[in-house]
Design a binder for these strands. Structure first.
Lengths: 226, 226
DNA sequence: CCTGGCAATATTTTCGAAAATCTTTATTTA
DNA sequence: TAAATAAAGATTTTCGAAAATATTGCCAGG
């Protein structure tokens, strides 16, 4: 793997996890130090992150971490509902045995990690949270992986990462909500998908995302209102 | 504007127009000469184009122009129908007077250019074709610009460029089809949009794209089958 | 004649310095 | 004092050379 690729993944994670907070100016000299590489790989990473909308760049005035806002979060969530809703529908219609198998496997892997993390003493390490996050992403990707559209999958990936910027930092801070069982929601969703009930599954998926949005809006709203 | 930005726009156009054909290896030394800039701006441009899926990159083995195929074209078209269909619907619901004005203006500008180009002696110059293409893009963007979703607009832009790779090269080669009046299709579409008839407008837009797809598939298919 | 390994060449990737541009600070002028 | 101007400093952008890696062509051994 090239240094540019490594830098890309590291900066990307630091933005998602919040280590590099929204609107933070990204000075090249400082990033060079932080990630221990030269200018070229850093610039390459930042250019790619710009296409992901994780950083913004004004010509000759450098890069900053992209801002976040409640409005932008809802835009990402609603667009995700559209993209993944359609992709899930197509997956359920066209998905073969291999697709089903991957869905089951990804769900199982997610559950195992969720269980193991839940028994860990707080605060949970960055590495464990990241591992859990990887499997969460893998599960959601597996659901729509049978849609046979590379464009839908690409867009879904971009939107997943974007919404994660809102979800992840609150995952660390707040304790799990007593009135919401994410594990159960995932299981019901998978069961419905495997039963090939496209309408119900799409509804469940979208409701899942919108409920998350409402909770996050309540958590973030008061803070940004200050 | 930075050199990297200029290089980006130039390479992008050369790929869309077909001057740099699909699968063409992009040697840095050669591009450096062609566009008259150093390594850094070229690499920056290629990295951005990779995010647009116009070039592909294998680590340490360099960049090539992204391949095209009938299957990929249909994927782009169908995804575009989904994205722009929803965006158009939202535009019609939420669009204000300023949005309507921009639609009318963009349509008018497109018609003017189309008329002027149609009177020009063949072959039409690259510059004229590009100018016409810019206005065509602007019109389609204006239609959905009222949707109030930056994500939908971003995705629509990406897909527009991708489908243009299939449409544009055939625009130059083949004469206009006698049984299809694109100008009329655009006018009917705009009238329906301004009448705020979301269902009909969405149908027209999607049919417009799918008809184009069928024609292009017939033109391209025989060639690639060789 | 074919195949595997090795040197030579070509290409990409990375680095650090130089050039270009923006920002800040100090100074002058009205 | 406020506005405008100029110098100094900081930062981004660009370049070309050096390092790392891949590809090609050649030769020996089976």
């Amino acid at each position: 793997m090239t240094l540019a690729e490594q830098a890309y993944q590291q900066v990307r994670w630091d933005i998602i996890s919040g280590a590099l907070p929204p609107n933070q100016p990204l000075r090249l000299e400082q990033l060079k130090q932080r990630y221990g590489v030269g200018f070229s790989p850093i610039r390459e990473a930042l250019n790619r992150l710009q296409s992901d909308r994780l950083v913004v760049n004004v010509a000759l005035r450098g890069f900053t971490v992209a801002p976040i806002s409640i409005a932008e979060m809802w835009d990402a969530i609603e667009t995700r509902c559209l993209i993944e809703g359609d992709a899930l529908r197509r997956s359920i219609e066209k998905g073969d045995d291999a697709w089903e198998a991957h869905v089951v496997a990804a769900y199982h892997a997610l559950m195992l990690k969720a269980k193991s993390v839940s028994t860990l003493p707080r605060p949970v390490s960055e590495a464990d949270l990241r591992a859990l996050e990887e499997r969460h992403h893998a599960f959601h990707r597996a659901l729509i992986a049978g849609c046979q559209s590379q464009w839908l999958l690409d867009f879904a990936d971009k939107l997943y990462v974007e919404t994660e910027r809102y979800r992840f930092p609150n995952l660390r801070d707040s304790s799990p909500l007593p009135d919401r069982d994410i594990g159960n929601e995932h299981q019901v969703l998978m069961t419905t998908v495997l039963a090939r009930d496209a309408d119900t599954a799409t509804q469940l998926l979208q409701t899942h995302y919108r409920n998350t949005g409402r909770i996050l809006a309540d958590l973030i709203g008061p803070l940004t209102a200050v």
